[in-house]
Amino acid sequence: MILNNQLIVENIQYNYAKKNILQDVSFTCSNGIIALLGNNGAGKSTIMKIIAGMMKPAKGKVLLNNQSILTSQNYPIHKIGYLPQDFDIYGNVSGYDFLSYVYDIKKLKQPSKKQVLDELIAKFNLEEVIYKKFSSYSGGYKRRLGIAQAVLGEPKLIIIDEPSVGLDPIQRIEFRSYLAEISRTAITLISTHIIEDVELYSDEILILREQHIQFQGSVEQLIQLSTPHIYSANVQVDELIAFKKKVRTIEEKRISDTLIKVKFINNQGETFGNKEKEISLENAYVYFQNK
């Protein structure tokens, strides 16, 4: 039986150099992949670091299964996995040494360390490199080791900051399948600005904008929310510049040498164009950021 975990983030406020970075950030989530979306500089990494206990908020609470993790004297690292954006370890030790270190520092109590590590290594296809120095790893192997260390000990919450950065398309597919598996038993909180990934794997989306969580829901809900406002029109190439001055375009697609299909946000009840039926998450996200 898989236990459902619960993460509650309540009224988080974070200031830096007298600037308000986060204001009353609140959300609740449970097992599955939760994607935290936001433009660059919106404060995604700050939220992730606050939940990871690496930054102290000015205000607010973070509860994991009703236990406050920020106020507890010993942050429960055995219950939480963290993969930072720039995952790096000392280059002169092997991946095995590092996993072994993570196992020890988390004081995991599984009966056999070797068995646990061997299974993890096999699961993330790290056998080929695991005893080699980390400095010799390719970007893909580094990322795999990063996820492996984050999921070691079957944590209840896994925090992953910008997971797809630096991965090629094949590695991203591979990565998505790992995430799908680990999120069955844990809350997997991912911060990203790559919409395409979110569309493929996330169960829930959080959109961070102007220091607040502005949206929480599924991909479908976000699309649904934006559907009445996204229109499209076929525009002559020589009229495109003038058209773009009138509306906020979100996508352009070439139909022929002279014709472009333009998706745009219809906020002011423009009479031209038709309601768009094929709305992607990216379209919905851009709508949300501009509404």
Binding site: A52, G53, M54, Y75, I77, Y82, L83, P84, Q85, D86, F87, D88, I89, Y90, Y101, V102, I105, K106, G146, Q149
Partner: peptide, 10 residues
Amino acid sequence: QLESTLFLER
């Protein structure tokens, strides 16, 4: 100062 290490060592 590795972020992964800082997370684990607190």
